[in-house]
Every structure is written in structure tokens, then in C-alpha cells.
Simulated scan of single mutants.
Amino acid sequence: MVKVGFIICPHCSDMTWETKEFAAVKTGAGAFRNLGPAAVVGCIACAGCPGRQVVNRAKLLIKCGADIIAMSSCMSSTAADKNACPYYEHILEELSKKLRTTIVIDCRNGAGA
């Protein structure tokens, strides 16, 4: 079974994303539809702006068994949303570049759909 680890925002106080994204992983829905049913191994915060520790944090998830790193939708709210991470695109790019053997999923693409 494929295992997913989530990168979250440490400033995000609304944890409703967990319900929909963890359920999406379990059922293989939304952004995880190409995986089929999978398991969540954990979630960890990026360590604060501008995501200086995000690659190291992702590597911790990989050590815990994550095959895939998913950027939680709590970080990727719309630009008009005050909770949107202004470094989201940069973080996504860094993870994709530095974790070449690990798939990075952008949960903006319908995690809970």
C-alpha cells in the first residue's frame, strides 16, 4: 500500500483539511485518485515562513515510510484567503526538485473531491 505524508502550515488553525484529505487518501479520491486507496503516515509543519525546513521535514516523513509527500490544502487556499501560504509555489518547487525519488502532490487539485 502506498503511504502519504503531509506538509502543513504551522499557522493554520483550522484543521478541517485533515478530515477531507485523510479520507481522500484512504479512499483514493480527489488529488489521490491515481494512487488508489493509500495510508497516511503522518503530517508535519514546514517549520514556518518561508518554508526553510520543508525539505528536511519531508525527509523525516520519508524516514517514517512516506512514498508520497502531499502539500495540504490548508497551505494552498486561494490568494484572496488570508491563510494562503505566500511561499506555496516555491515550497512545491523545492520539494519536487530536491525529492526526485518521491512524488509530491499538490492538494489544490481536488483532495476532497
Score class of each variant (00 low, 15 high):
C107G: 06
S72R: 02
K82I: 08
M1R: 04
A111R: 08
A45K: 11
T16D: 15
A58T: 03
V4S: 11
S76F: 04
I105W: 04
K59M: 12
S13H: 13
C9A: 05
R33W: 07
D106A: 05
V4C: 10
I105D: 02
I44F: 13
C64F: 11
G36I: 01
C43P: 00
V40M: 01
M15T: 14
F22S: 00
V4L: 09
G112W: 10
A70P: 05
L35K: 01
L95G: 10
P37W: 05
E94I: 09
G42M: 06
P10Q: 12
S13R: 15
R33D: 12
I69F: 07
R33L: 02
E21V: 01
F32C: 11
K97M: 13
I7V: 09
C64T: 00
A31K: 06
K3W: 04
A31H: 08
A79F: 13
A45Q: 11
I8M: 02
S73A: 14
T102P: 05
A39Q: 15
K59H: 07
I103D: 13
F22R: 09
I103P: 08
E93P: 01
R108L: 02
K82F: 08
T101I: 00
S73K: 06
C49D: 04
F32E: 06
T102K: 10
A111N: 09
P10F: 07
T78A: 07
V2K: 12
D106K: 06
A29Q: 10
A84D: 04
I62A: 01
I68V: 12
M15P: 01
A84E: 04
A111C: 05
N34E: 14
F22V: 00
G36M: 08
A29L: 11
I91L: 14
R52A: 14
G110Y: 00
R108V: 00
A23K: 03
A66P: 07
E93M: 10
A38H: 08
K26C: 05
R108Y: 09
N109C: 10
A47E: 12
L35S: 06
C46R: 05
V40T: 15
E21N: 07
G112H: 13
C74P: 03
A45C: 14
C64I: 00
A45D: 15
G28W: 07
Y87D: 06
L35I: 03
V40P: 01
L61G: 03
M1E: 09
C12Y: 04
T101G: 11
I105F: 03
P86C: 12
